[in-house]
Amino acid sequence: MKTANILLNGKFLSAAPTGVHRVAQELGNALADLVAEGHESVRGLNFDVGLPYDGLQRSGAMRLPTRVIKPFRGIPWEQISLPLKSGDATLLNLCNIGPVIARNAVTMIHDVQVHLSPESYSKGFRLWYHAVQPLMAKRHRHILTVSEFSRQEIAKAQLCSLDHISVVHNGVDHVLNMASDNSIITKCDLNTSPYVLALSTVQAHKNISLLMKAFADSRLSGLKLVLFGGTAKASFEAMGITVPDNVVFAGRVSDGELRALIEHALCLAFPSTTEGFGLPPLEAMLLGCPAIVAPCGALPEVCGDAAIHCAPDKAQEWVEAITRLSDDPEYRSQVAKAGAHHASRFTWRAAAIKLAGILTQI
């Protein structure tokens, strides 16, 4: 059998973890598990992870073999050192960007938000992505993405043609491996307070201002809106967004704290106007927490009818949906059960098998 060497771009191990980095780590580890069991999907494929020297500290998070590639770090490492030292291996880039000079590469572009919602990103970020992604997408052997919605959007943005793009849905079962850290509930004074959970960000397409309007409604005065993430209250106010008194900023949280917040929440609210995939709603659903989402981007594709859908520009609908979940425990239980069943289909093992099949075929 012909063999192929696959070198996973490990630049993500040198940076603060993000949702995209989570995908790279989980997919890499799922591939490692398939290799360990001798699964037919990875026969003939040899995997390892190339990383810059500043990624060595986190290399233990990977179950694939790792090796440090020198010199440089950051963008120079990814654009120069990695492709020049990759030999005959196919480069596997799972975090939106890969080396432009490489041709023997497969790259995952999670979304084209930087093209659809440029106001959500800094000027430098926009310029870099606009310069690199079109060249990379056309030069690399194949492009991966995480939803059919993103596949269509990548083609519409003219990064490459549809026949050059394959879909590998994310998994979500990593949340089951996180041990709940209930100390966050006490820390945020939520032991006796029902609350709705959402992401704390001022990115325009995340649309959190809609939730601020909803929680200013008197019908939600008995509930709290708990926002997790690095964006503080002052950042919302600086943008002219009024923050109601019943909004709690939990700050950055660990995986265990996030699981606890999800498990104790009335629901998770996710009003994004566009998403390439949408991991947070699925994470919540798998843990038995109902999700309310805007029917935008990939969210209908990913969440299906197992989530509650509310318009992204009608705060009234969100108030009514949250109120019904709060007032009708039986209804909430039905939604939670349907959500958990739906989300259980999205596993990293299934994603890795799909990815391995693509790598074998190209």
Rank of each mutant, 00 (worst) to 15 (best):
F236N: 04
P52F: 01
C95K: 02
L190R: 10
I97R: 01
S120G: 15
K224C: 05
D189I: 01
G28F: 01
G10A: 12
R58C: 10
L225R: 00
L92T: 00
P329D: 14
R126W: 10
S180E: 14
E153T: 04
F270Q: 08
H142Y: 07
F249Q: 10
R349W: 07
V106I: 10
G124S: 15
R252H: 12
W318A: 10
R103S: 14
A157E: 15
L56I: 08
A204V: 13
L258N: 07
S147F: 07
L162T: 06
A179K: 15
D217I: 09
A294H: 03
V49Q: 00
E119G: 15
N29G: 12
C188R: 12
L31Q: 06
T90S: 01
S221C: 05
R67D: 04
V68K: 06
L51K: 13
K187Y: 02
C267M: 06
E237L: 06
V23D: 03
V106Q: 01
S150V: 08
T347P: 10
R259V: 05
V168G: 12
I262T: 15
S200Q: 06
A291Y: 01
A105R: 03
E275C: 07
V196I: 11
R324G: 06
N96L: 02
H110G: 08
S14I: 03
V132Q: 08
V226L: 13
I101V: 15
K233R: 14
N5S: 15
D181K: 03
K2P: 13
L211P: 09
L159C: 12
A234L: 05
A4T: 06
N207V: 02
L31W: 07
A351E: 08
N29A: 07
G230P: 05
P134K: 01
P300T: 11
H341E: 08
